[in-house]
Design a protein around this nucleic acid. Structure first.
Lengths: 195, 195, 195, 195
DNA sequence: AATGAATGAGGGTTCATTCAT
DNA sequence: TATGAATGAACCCTCATTCAT
């Protein structure tokens, strides 16, 4: 990648982070291109140099986040840990990411209301990938006998539901720290599968 | 209540049900008053005979749903069941309501992005009431010794998160029936608290 | 006129008076049929039993007022007074009417912005009649030698302008009484014509 | 001021002049943003680049005009003329402005029906300033003995009333020229105060 | 004689998007 | 690269008017 390309890439990410904040705070339809541009000390028009349109901007925000999530969980999957440890790690990792990058993370909600066509298919695929990783861990646990014989899909939905919901209530100033939440949630959720 | 009042009330509810469908499908900002009216074979303007504005319409949808939820859970709370049975019932009831009235239920998400001022305060209060009921059940279980000594608030957040998330994936045509989901979720979630 | 007709006529005038108040306060376009109906403890729809439409309602308000004005000035014209006394009386009478019926009187402003076609022509004719009466008095004064030789039209415009403007600032609670205003204005305005 | 700012200022004034014509012809409520835009070969939406909303546009029209009026009268006040000459000049100046800029001038009517809150207070203040200048001249004349001992406020109301009313009847094609009107009105009105 | 309900045309305003500079 | 200016489609909402009852 040329230096120029890299610089653009850098700028793009800077925009993405800032855009994500506004977008997650006001919602996709609630946030205007102007809102986003203002926060970046740019003008509305300039944004179109970097992004094709609003949907594209949103998509890139989304992608940036899901890539990070997938990276992390792949790492966990490929480690030498036991299934229990893997599931615990995945839960903790998800929470850490969600709470640290609350703003960006919360973009990932209700994609059907924001995306259409090509973009939507892509987004759903990426999500599905992430979910598959969880299924993989759970299946592994069942096979090794570490886990009880649960309904894999339903359990995964339960777990991810409880984790994703954290965005709805977590606040850095709020009562619980990230670590407290991580510990409690991984403890509680593992109780479901442990024999 | 006069006959006229009753008729108007009936019409209002009819509108609400239909509106909820459109609103939950397209989101608050995504759905237009025209969309909603068209579905009812009405005109945009007519809606304003029954509702002050879009926010008001949305608010009423919301209220209708949360009233039902609160009614149900109050019934459970006041019953003679054990804490375990109460929690299980509350979970099942929540799932039944959420899946049966998926469209209306899903309106209850992210109120800060849709409401402001008076309305928002009201909504948040109603939500908080519902959550308090769950806390009450959990506390009861701890006191009677039925439940393990958990962090009440975090557990409640975990449970409600996993339940609310059902809206994101449940589909009547999908793989699992309401009952299967209810059974699995109440089973799994109770494992967390049972000693 | 039958008794029934008379009753309708009565009701009409009642509506007119009340309507005029709202109309003059909020302006023709600013006042809604609902505003007017509410004040009369009626419903919007009922107004259409008495009046063809908003323009018609406004027109009738207008007519009611100008008829009164013309009546009074005709009386003055046909009296046995001197021109000076007639002009003075006309001024005083105009002020009394304008201040007593401030609300209705102020409807008579800028008819071109509110009326069209048939209505407009009618209104302008009625206005013109009233103005002609003033001209007549002034001409009479010049002929009898009571008045200086002024430009009749310009003087009439000056006088009526200053009188009509009273609506813009007169308030029953304000500093000056109707009589003080009447006296001062007739005194000042007569100074212009007196030799 | 930068070149850009100047250009925008220029455009704003261009819009204001054109808007004033439409607004004064059709009235505030009668004129639509579309009407105004069309006349400028612009689109409705573009107007919002320059003005916050309709009320703002109207306010700026108003302000532009009253600033001019105040400028002129201040000049007169600060001159070395006698009170009689000052009053005469003020009358002539007012007439010249009103007839030359008939369209914009006529916007200044009935502000309570068009403005609210902040805007209204501002407008009323500006008006009041202008009136105070007239009072000052009249008081000066009384003090120097040039004028008869009149009721200052009532006389000012009489004078400004007759002047403002000119807008209701003046037409460039009509019978009287600006100068004829100016001469007649200042002559007539001064007769009131001259000893 | 009155009204509840519905309508639809139109108004103000917002905003994603474009494009010349 | 960046932006100022313009656009136009779409949205929410208002309101005069109608009409069955």
């Amino acid at each position: 990648m040329s230096l120029r390309k890299k610089k653009i890439e850098k700028k793009k990410e800077e925009i993405l982070r800032s855009a994500a904040e506004v977008l997650s705070e006001k919602g996709y339809h609630g946030a205007t291109m102007e809102d986003i541009a203002t926060k970046l000390l740019m003008t509305k028009g300039s944004m179109y140099y970097y992004f094709k349109n609003k949907e594209d901007l949103y998509y890139q925000c989304h992608k940036m986040m899901i890539d990070k999530s997938n990276e992390k969980i792949e790492e966990i999957i490929n480690s030498n840990k036991s299934a229990i440890e893997k599931l615990s790690s995945a839960i903790v990792s998800h929470i850490q990411l969600a709470t640290t990058e609350k703003t960006m993370f919360s973009l990932m909600d209700k994609p059907e209301q924001k995306f259409s066509g090509e973009y939507l298919a892509d987004i759903l695929q990426q999500r599905s990938d992430y979910e598959k990783y969880f299924d993989k861990i759970i299946n592994e646990g069942i096979e090794t006998g570490e886990f009880d014989n649960v309904d894999v899909k339903l359990l995964r939905l339960l777990i991810l539901g409880s984790l994703n919901w954290i965005l709805e209530w977590y606040s850095p100033e709020g009562g619980k720290t990230q670590d407290e939440i991580s510990e409690a949630f991984s403890d509680y959720l593992l109780r479901i599968v442990k024999k």
